[in-house]
Nucleic acid binder design. Structure first.
Length: 922
RNA sequence: GCGGGGAUGCCGGAGCGGUCAAACGGGCUGGAUUUAGGCUCCAGUGGCUUAGUGCUUGCGGAGGUUCGAAUCCUCUUCCCCGCACCA
């Protein structure tokens, strides 16, 4: 399967990749080429990759790809003259270290330090241009001290608080999880089922920032899908809070709805089963039995998608504030306790409510029909001689001589069928509506039709559409906006008009108000694990919850704890037992630690000032470097790290520590590297290691291959064979080095400048494959280039293949690092498209000649004879004549007629006349 | 169900209204060089065909807009990703 080149280094002609890599990596380090210094005169650029978890003691080519994407950008910007900050560090707190500790009997700290040491060796072998003097690791007290510091600041402001709440618990990890970490009911880390538990936990009040987190998304250049995920997660919706009072009581149930326009339709309420008041309602009533059996049923189907509607009557009645009528309160399995108030008003204009009502025989009342102006128009494309008979049983009338308007009483839906001349061609035909996605058929007939939002458009599309027949059913609910009826004084209003009016009306009566609701929940930061930042809180028997005074920070993570006996920190008595900072009395420390996403919420700030002992970072340095200009990382953090970090920065701004709103101005999501159709993983055994490739071909080859094969944002399939292509390109580059000329001709200059232009533009937007392809094309089309072009070429390539570029840069007599050389500028005045045209002409001529040859040889049997070929000098200059000769393997002599003597000293060509093409055969 | 992204040769992928669909890489076929292999170089690689610088198709499917569409519009099928009974 894998083709192995025996000694690639021999083939490369004296290249010894390993030596070259070591040589330049050493030089870069010794001369501190990539260390960033604040310099107010220089424009800064901050490139950052999400800092890795140092668990793996190896790097696979997926890692290599991720790091290379950032390195290329950093190197490019550096050569462009920016003061580049490009750091690396480690997200070193977390569960894997603890698991390894348990398994192998190594202390997590030792395990982590070893891992970091190991991964650093591999990372350094990549030759990336990191500023290694700024390394940070979040498990170090110098780092996590500031987690505690910021926690205390947030505690002061009420942004960190403790509450008892139902939380996500992962049995496997033995810890709670944040909402964001529970992915579809599974633990994000281990995939274990997440269960609900009521626990007292620490939260950060991210909900206070929901609106800003949403609005500021417009300020940043992120992939749309990530922004969209965040928007969905924040889940802002404007609606109404309405009060439903109990009969003869001052007590009420609050509901949240976005569709207060349907309030007159509300004939019952539904509550979430775990709503705190449900138990109270049914206690000691005949409904308690129903409750118990429902809860049992619920558990059984908990993890099924598409559950049937289920629930029970609570025995309570409330008053519909609009109609004044008594309506029953049910518990239903489709109501989410977490969203809104956990109580929903139910009516005839919601599919779920409708189904529920049918099942429990609750009466329904419709109050909405579709808008006049959103009336659905149809075209029948078929020839319907008997169309009138099709409409039998429906109420219909001809409108304005060009259509049929049909009224279906049950559904309050009007259909409009224009009868233009473009219709009535061929069958079959059926009806469907757009917008609310409902489809309608006439009896059992199927109509081939198209829907437009107005008559004219429907006509325009009409002839073109064909919708395949389906078994269609008309759902009984109309869920869209429409026109109100059965709604008292609001009759005749559209939904859009009615919503604010009803809100006002309810507000006047103190029965409701306009509200904005968010889906996002507060960020649960407590973890019942050892390997994390201790939460700096003390519980005093007298004073209650007391923050650890700043001067006592950091609260060090105790070295000795027992694993497997619940919360590890609680097993260290000396740690737990402490004195109250306020009253000096007996007190206990908090034994939960902070989740790792706290660490990663501000690490990018610490890079700017990683050695600061007095503060987390100095303002001056932060304000010089921040925000991160280009952030690179996986999409899996869309609503976790990327949300938390944004929140954290906003908090820090409000606390006066930073002066910007957003941490990452541009975000880039790299794609995943697959092998044999699956994500690389040790357990699947489909891992291609960094060293597999770098030992054989050198790390530069691996980089080049990874970058040229697929756009960085795309997922890619690793293919061993493909590496050789990249390897050949490097060899070609090396060969070109041996034939450098003094001066470039106009053609070369044109091509070179064009290359510079395209490559620069492509790298700028991280379109690396395009940049590489452009460079390859240049090498192929100018095999013997001038030294100047070659130097430009090397510079353009150096971000991709830094070691080899340095080596060749030195080999052709340059001093200093190409890594610090100035990025070439394209001189657009030198670019001339006529050279491209000439090339096209050559290509065409080549195939012509080969065809002619074929004819002569095969058809005329004149093999072995000497053939002279003349071409028009305007189109083919001497360079291209040479190329032509080469490409047709010297079987044919090709030359420009205006330079006959040079190519035809014997005068054999004789009669060729300039300006006239011809083939002369001797 | 909702939202986002896709579908192009044997494969990975360019092109994103016209001047050239398939750049570039891999694979395959033939040739040159070579003791042989590798490396390197050249040509071919959607289909049809009588030699062609010719014809004809062809960018998931159907239809439309346009003088002209892989590219824009409509619908449809399938795939990937996210959210999911969010009122």
């Amino acid at each position: 399967m894998t083709r192995v080149i025996k000694n690639p280094e021999d083939n490369a002609g004296r290249f010894n990749f390993k030596d070259i890599e070591r040589k330049w990596q050493k030089k870069w380090e010794e001369e501190r080429v990539f260390e960033a210094k604040e310099d107010s005169k220089k424009r800064k650029y901050y490139v950052l990759e999400m800092y890795p978890y140092p668990s793996a003691s190896f790097l696979h080519i997926g890692h290599v790809r991720n790091y290379t994407i950032g390195d290329i950008y950093a190197r490019y910007k550096r050569m462009k003259g920016f003061n580049v900050l490009y750091p690396m560090g480690y997200d070193s707190f977390g569960l894997p270290a603890e698991i390894a500790a348990k398994k192998e009997g190594i202390h997590p700290e030792k395990y982590t330090n070893n891992s970091i040491k190991q991964i650093m060796v591999y990372q350094k072998a990549l030759g990336n241009s990191y500023d290694w003097s700024r390394v940070i690791a979040s498990h170090e007290p110098e780092y996590y001290k500031w987690n505690q510091f910021f926690f205390l600041k947030m505690f002061e402001k009420g942004l960190a608080y403790r509450k008892n709440a139902p939380v996500n618990w992962c049995e496997n990890c033995q810890s709670v999880l944040a909402n964001e970490e529970s992915e579809g009911g599974k633990c994000w880390r281990c995939g274990n089922e997440v269960v609900q538990k009521d626990l007292e936990q620490w939260f950060f009040k991210i909900t206070d920032y929901a609106d800003r987190l949403l609005k500021d998304l417009d300020k940043i250049e992120w992939p749309e899908r990530i922004k969209e995920m965040q928007r969905n997660w924040i889940g802002r919706s404007e609606g109404t809070l309405a009060k439903f009072f109990f009969r003869d009581s001052k007590d009420s149930l609050d509901i949240f709805t976005t569709r207060i326009d349907t309030i007159f339709s509300v004939t019952f309420l539904v509550m979430a089963s775990n709503h705190p008041r449900v138990k109270e309602f049914v206690r000691n009533t005949k409904y308690e039995k129903e409750y118990t059996s429902f809860m049992k049923r619920l558990e059984l189907v908990q993890n099924e998608t598409d559950k049937d509607k289920d629930g029970f009557f609570t025995g309570k009645y409330v008053i519909n504030p609009a109609t004044g009528k008594d309506i029953p309160v049910y518990v239903a399995n489709f109501v989410v306790a977490d969203y809104g108030t956990g109580v929903v008003m139910a009516d005839a204009h919601d599919q779920r409510d409708y189904e529920f009502a049918k099942k429990f025989n609750i009466p329904l009342k419709t109050v909405l029909r579709p808008h006049k102006d959103t009336r659905v128009h149809y075209i029948i494309r078929s020839l319907v001689d008997d169309w009138k008979s099709k409409l039998k049983g429906y109420q219909w009338s001809i409108v304005e001589n060009d259509g049929v308007e049909i009224f279906i009483p049950d559904n309050k839906l009007e259909l409009f069928i224009p009868l233009g001349q473009s219709l009535l061609k061929k069958g079959p035909y059926y009806f469907s509506t757009r917008g609310d996605k409902r489809l309608i058929i006439f009896k059992d007939k199927v109509f081939d039709i198209f829907i437009g939002d107005n008559n004219k458009k429907a006509n325009a599309y009409g002839a073109s559409l064909s919708i395949p027949p389906k078994e269609l059913a008309w759902s009984q609910t109309y869920e869209g906006y429409g026109v109100l009826y059965n709604s008292g004084k609001f009759d005749g209003l559209t939904s859009e008009e009615a919503i604010p009016r009803i809100q006002e009306w309810l507000a006047e009566k103190n029965l409701g108000r306009k509200v904005v609701n968010y889906k996002i929940r507060d960020w649960l930061i407590s973890r019942q694990r050892y390997w994390g930042t201790p939460i700096p809180i003390i519980y005093c028997d007298k004073c209650g919850v007391v923050p650890v005074p700043e001067k006592d920070l950091p609260v060090l993570l105790p070295e000795k704890v027992n694993f497997g006996e619940g919360n590890p920190l609680s097993t260290n008595k000396a740690f737990v037992k402490t004195k109250c900072p306020k009253c000096n009395g007996k007190a206990q420390r908090e034994t939960d630690t902070m989740g790792g996403f706290v660490d990663s919420s501000w690490y990018f700030l610490r890079y700017c000032d990683n050695k600061n002992k007095k503060e987390a970072f100095s303002k001056d340095k932060i304000h010089y470097w921040m925000p991160v200009d280009q952030y690179i990382g996986g999409a899996e953090h869309a609503v976790m790290h990327l949300m938390y970090a944004r929140f954290f920065v906003k908090v820090l701004k409000d606390l006066g520590y930073v002066n910007f709103d957003e941490p990452f101005m541009r975000l880039f999501n790299q794609g995943i590297v697959y092998k044999d159709g699956a994500k690389m993983s040790k357990s699947k055994g489909n891992v291609v290691f960094q060293t597999d490739i770098s030992n054989k071909y050198g790390i530069d080859t691996a980089r080049l291959f990874l970058m040229m094969t697929a756009s960085p944002e795309k997922q890619m399939e690793w293919n061993d064979d493909g590496v050789e292509g990249a390897f050949r390109i490097i060899n070609k580059l090396k060969r070109a080095c041996g034939t450098l000329g003094d001066k470039a001709d106009a053609r070369e200059e044109s091509k070179c400048n064009k290359m510079i232009k395209i490559v620069s533009e492509s790298i700028e937007i991280l379109d690396y494959p395009k940049a590489i392809v452009t460079i390859i094309n240049f090498i192929d089309s100018v095999p013997e280039m001038s030294k100047k072009s070659y130097e430009s070429l090397l510079k353009l390539l150096s971000p991709f293949i830094p070691h080899i570029s340095e080596e060749l840069w030195e080999a052709i007599g340059n001093k200093g690092f190409i890594s610090l050389a100035e990025w070439p500028k394209a001189d657009e005045s030198k670019i001339n498209e006529k050279f491209e045209e000439a090339e096209r002409a050559v290509n065409k001529t080549v195939s012509d000649i080969l065809n002619v040859l074929k004819i002569i040889k095969e058809k005329q049997g004149r093999e072995g004879e000497k053939i002279y070929l003349y071409v028009i000098p305007n189109e083919i200059d001497n360079y291209n004549a040479d190329t032509l000769s080469k490409r047709v393997q010297n079987e044919v002599k090709v030359f420009a007629v205006n330079d006959k003597s040079k190519y035809d000293p014997e005068g054999k060509a004789g009669k060729a006349k300039p300006g006239k093409p011809g083939i002369f055969i001797e």
